[in-house]
Design a protein around this nucleic acid. Structure first.
Lengths: 119, 119
DNA sequence: GTGATCTAGAACCATGTGGTTTACTATACC
DNA sequence: GGTATAGTAAACCACATGGTTCTAGATCAC
């Protein structure tokens, strides 16, 4: 089972919760980029963009190597896998089981049986 | 393409970034629950738990219906699908392409060609 | 009606977040 | 050596977040 109490998952989901950080991740799918390259398409100052990269590093979504005066970043996708595994646990809830027909049937069943809500 | 600039996705990922809220989601896989049921397993006061439910509602992950004095919550999994779709875009980056061997080959190729980083 | 239960809401507090500006360090280039 | 470039660090700000306590309003059970 994938635990809900996982500080790592906290960091990953939080990192993904900002459009600038998602944009950085997408940019890194093109390969290594330095901070200036990552910052330039974002509508904010350089230090602000730099902070976003740090958040991504904290979530292990980005790894940085220093080459001269440049800091080159690369995508580290493993945490994205963890995030996907967590959300995919609930796949059944957005698929057939909760189609309109099944939902109706379930409601009819509940009315007929009136079972306790707790498992 | 799944956009990075999506306020809906901001809300969903932010909602998932707290262990209490993930626990609530998991609890709701067992069916409808009222607020007291959702709050009791959480190590916090009732108003705090209630706020977490509101965050989940804001992200459309939970829908509430009022029955007498109880507020019954149910899971609304569609936003989880959106989140999964976003993260799954990068599946290739945690799979074969970045296996140890491929990574080595890529590094050798880079050393041989020294291509520009930008596409 | 009385009392217990379920929930909302407001006030408050500490801390975190996301952004800015300014100043500084270190490397590269000529 | 002097200057431009890449990046950090610190100070500051407005606002959000996550928690508490206390008060109050419905509704249910007896």
């Amino acid at each position: 089972m994938v635990l809900d109490h996982s500080p790592r998952l906290d960091l990953v989901f939080h990192a993904l919760a900002h459009p600038a950080r998602r944009a950085i991740i997408r940019q890194l799918t093109g390969g290594e980029r330095n901070l200036s390259e990552l910052a330039s398409p974002l509508k904010m100052t350089f230090p602000a963009a730099s902070k976003h990269v740090r958040v991504l590093e904290g979530a292990k979504l980005v790894r940085r190597r220093i080459a001269g005066r440049e800091h080159l970043c690369r995508l580290e996708a493993a945490p994205l896998k963890d995030a996907t595994l967590w959300t995919e646990q609930f796949r059944q809830f957005w698929e057939t089981r909760f189609s309109a027909l099944d939902e109706l049937l379930e409601e009819m069943k509940q009315q007929a049986e009136a079972p306790p809500r707790k498992p």
